[in-house]
Amino acid sequence: MESFTPLTATLGGALIGLATAVLWLGNGRIAGISGIFGQLLPPAQTVVWRLVFLVALVAATFAAARLFPGLGAGGDSPARLVEAPAAWGVPTPVWLAVAGLLTGLGTKIGNGCTSGHGVCGLARLSLRSLVATLVFLGVAVITVAVTGVV
Protein backbone atom coordinates (compact mmCIF):
# COMPACT_ATOMS: atom_id res chain seq x y z
CA MET A 1 0.00 0.00 0.00
CA GLU A 2 2.38 2.68 -1.24
CA SER A 3 -0.25 5.40 -1.10
CA PHE A 4 -0.61 5.05 2.69
CA THR A 5 0.92 8.20 4.23
CA PRO A 6 0.32 8.10 8.01
CA LEU A 7 3.10 10.58 8.93
CA THR A 8 2.11 13.46 6.67
CA ALA A 9 -1.56 12.70 7.34
CA THR A 10 -1.00 13.02 11.10
CA LEU A 11 1.11 16.16 10.69
CA GLY A 12 -1.45 17.76 8.36
CA GLY A 13 -4.28 16.73 10.67
CA ALA A 14 -2.50 18.32 13.63
CA LEU A 15 -2.17 21.56 11.62
CA ILE A 16 -5.90 21.48 10.84
CA GLY A 17 -6.61 20.83 14.53
CA LEU A 18 -4.37 23.77 15.45
CA ALA A 19 -6.26 25.95 12.95
CA THR A 20 -9.62 25.11 14.54
CA ALA A 21 -8.10 25.55 18.04
CA VAL A 22 -6.75 29.03 17.21
CA LEU A 23 -10.11 30.23 15.85
CA TRP A 24 -12.04 28.79 18.82
CA LEU A 25 -9.77 30.08 21.61
CA GLY A 26 -9.02 33.38 19.86
CA ASN A 27 -12.35 34.38 18.37
CA GLY A 28 -14.78 31.82 19.76
CA ARG A 29 -15.70 30.68 16.27
CA ILE A 30 -16.14 27.20 14.84
CA ALA A 31 -13.77 26.72 11.88
CA GLY A 32 -16.34 24.98 9.73
CA ILE A 33 -15.51 25.77 6.13
CA SER A 34 -19.03 25.29 4.78
CA GLY A 35 -20.33 27.75 7.38
CA ILE A 36 -17.58 30.29 6.73
CA PHE A 37 -18.07 29.96 2.97
CA GLY A 38 -21.86 29.78 3.06
CA GLN A 39 -22.33 32.98 5.07
CA LEU A 40 -20.26 35.25 2.85
CA LEU A 41 -23.39 37.04 1.67
CA PRO A 42 -25.58 39.33 3.78
CA PRO A 43 -27.26 39.30 6.29
CA ALA A 44 -24.08 38.22 8.07
CA GLN A 45 -22.19 41.24 9.50
CA THR A 46 -19.14 39.05 9.86
CA VAL A 47 -18.08 38.91 6.23
CA VAL A 48 -14.63 40.48 6.73
CA TRP A 49 -13.09 37.82 8.96
CA ARG A 50 -14.59 35.07 6.80
CA LEU A 51 -12.92 36.56 3.70
CA VAL A 52 -9.62 37.00 5.56
CA PHE A 53 -9.76 33.36 6.69
CA LEU A 54 -10.50 32.02 3.19
CA VAL A 55 -7.85 34.16 1.46
CA ALA A 56 -5.25 33.02 4.03
CA LEU A 57 -6.32 29.42 3.48
CA VAL A 58 -5.72 29.63 -0.28
CA ALA A 59 -2.47 31.59 0.16
CA ALA A 60 -1.09 29.04 2.65
CA THR A 61 -2.00 26.15 0.35
CA PHE A 62 -0.14 27.93 -2.45
CA ALA A 63 2.88 28.60 -0.22
CA ALA A 64 2.95 25.02 1.10
CA ALA A 65 2.87 23.72 -2.47
CA ARG A 66 5.90 25.90 -3.31
CA LEU A 67 7.80 24.82 -0.20
CA PHE A 68 6.98 21.12 -0.46
CA PRO A 69 6.27 20.42 -4.12
CA GLY A 70 4.78 17.02 -4.80
CA LEU A 71 3.55 16.40 -1.26
CA GLY A 72 -0.04 17.53 -1.72
CA ALA A 73 -0.90 14.93 -4.31
CA GLY A 74 1.66 12.28 -3.56
CA GLY A 75 4.09 13.28 -6.30
CA ASP A 76 1.69 14.37 -9.02
CA SER A 77 0.40 17.83 -9.64
CA PRO A 78 -2.56 18.39 -7.33
CA ALA A 79 -4.24 20.46 -10.01
CA ARG A 80 -6.56 17.72 -11.21
CA LEU A 81 -10.13 16.95 -10.33
CA VAL A 82 -11.69 13.53 -10.56
CA GLU A 83 -13.37 12.77 -13.87
CA ALA A 84 -16.86 11.36 -14.08
CA PRO A 85 -16.85 7.55 -14.33
CA ALA A 86 -16.88 6.56 -18.01
CA ALA A 87 -19.62 3.96 -17.53
CA TRP A 88 -22.14 6.62 -16.48
CA GLY A 89 -21.91 8.61 -19.70
CA VAL A 90 -22.18 11.89 -17.81
CA PRO A 91 -19.84 14.72 -18.89
CA THR A 92 -17.39 15.65 -16.14
CA PRO A 93 -18.53 19.32 -15.86
CA VAL A 94 -22.11 18.15 -15.23
CA TRP A 95 -20.86 15.55 -12.73
CA LEU A 96 -18.90 18.22 -10.84
CA ALA A 97 -21.81 20.65 -10.93
CA VAL A 98 -24.14 18.08 -9.36
CA ALA A 99 -21.50 17.13 -6.77
CA GLY A 100 -20.91 20.79 -5.91
CA LEU A 101 -24.62 21.53 -5.68
CA LEU A 102 -25.21 18.58 -3.32
CA THR A 103 -22.17 19.57 -1.24
CA GLY A 104 -23.38 23.16 -0.84
CA LEU A 105 -27.02 22.23 -0.24
CA GLY A 106 -26.26 19.33 2.11
CA THR A 107 -23.75 21.18 4.26
CA LYS A 108 -26.14 24.13 4.58
CA ILE A 109 -29.17 22.03 5.55
CA GLY A 110 -27.05 19.72 7.72
CA ASN A 111 -25.31 22.75 9.25
CA GLY A 112 -21.74 21.59 8.72
CA CYS A 113 -19.16 19.60 6.81
CA THR A 114 -16.04 17.57 7.49
CA SER A 115 -14.44 20.39 9.50
CA GLY A 116 -17.45 21.82 11.34
CA HIS A 117 -19.00 18.49 12.31
CA GLY A 118 -16.12 16.05 11.77
CA VAL A 119 -13.44 17.96 13.67
CA CYS A 120 -14.94 20.80 15.73
CA GLY A 121 -18.26 19.14 16.58
CA LEU A 122 -16.79 15.76 17.54
CA ALA A 123 -14.15 17.52 19.68
CA ARG A 124 -16.99 19.37 21.45
CA LEU A 125 -18.64 15.95 22.01
CA SER A 126 -21.74 17.10 20.11
CA LEU A 127 -24.28 14.34 19.45
CA ARG A 128 -25.53 16.21 16.36
CA SER A 129 -22.04 16.23 14.92
CA LEU A 130 -21.51 12.54 15.68
CA VAL A 131 -24.74 11.67 13.85
CA ALA A 132 -23.92 13.98 10.92
CA THR A 133 -20.36 12.63 10.59
CA LEU A 134 -21.49 9.00 10.62
CA VAL A 135 -24.18 9.77 8.03
CA PHE A 136 -22.04 11.72 5.56
CA LEU A 137 -19.11 9.30 5.87
CA GLY A 138 -21.40 6.29 5.43
CA VAL A 139 -23.26 7.78 2.48
CA ALA A 140 -19.99 8.88 0.84
CA VAL A 141 -18.58 5.34 1.16
CA ILE A 142 -21.75 3.92 -0.41
CA THR A 143 -21.66 6.56 -3.16
CA VAL A 144 -18.06 5.74 -4.09
CA ALA A 145 -18.94 2.04 -4.17
CA VAL A 146 -22.00 2.64 -6.37
CA THR A 147 -20.46 5.14 -8.80
CA GLY A 148 -17.16 3.30 -9.07
CA VAL A 149 -15.45 6.64 -9.56
CA VAL A 150 -12.17 5.12 -8.32
Binding site: A99, G100, G104, G106, T114, F136, V150
Partner: peptide, 19 residues
Protein backbone atom coordinates in the same frame (compact mmCIF):
# COMPACT_ATOMS: atom_id res chain seq x y z
CA UNK B 1 -29.42 17.31 10.05
CA UNK B 2 -29.60 13.72 8.79
CA UNK B 3 -30.99 14.65 5.36
CA UNK B 4 -28.42 17.40 4.84
CA UNK B 5 -25.55 15.14 5.89
CA UNK B 6 -26.81 12.45 3.49
CA UNK B 7 -26.95 14.90 0.55
CA UNK B 8 -23.45 16.10 1.40
CA UNK B 9 -22.28 12.47 1.56
CA UNK B 10 -23.47 11.88 -2.01
CA UNK B 11 -21.68 15.01 -3.25
CA UNK B 12 -18.50 14.13 -1.36
CA UNK B 13 -18.54 10.57 -2.70
CA UNK B 14 -19.04 11.79 -6.28
CA UNK B 15 -16.13 14.22 -6.41
CA UNK B 16 -13.98 13.64 -3.32
CA UNK B 17 -14.08 17.35 -2.59
CA UNK B 18 -15.47 18.66 0.70
CA UNK B 19 -15.76 22.43 1.26
Amino acid sequence: LVGGAALFGIGWGMAGICP
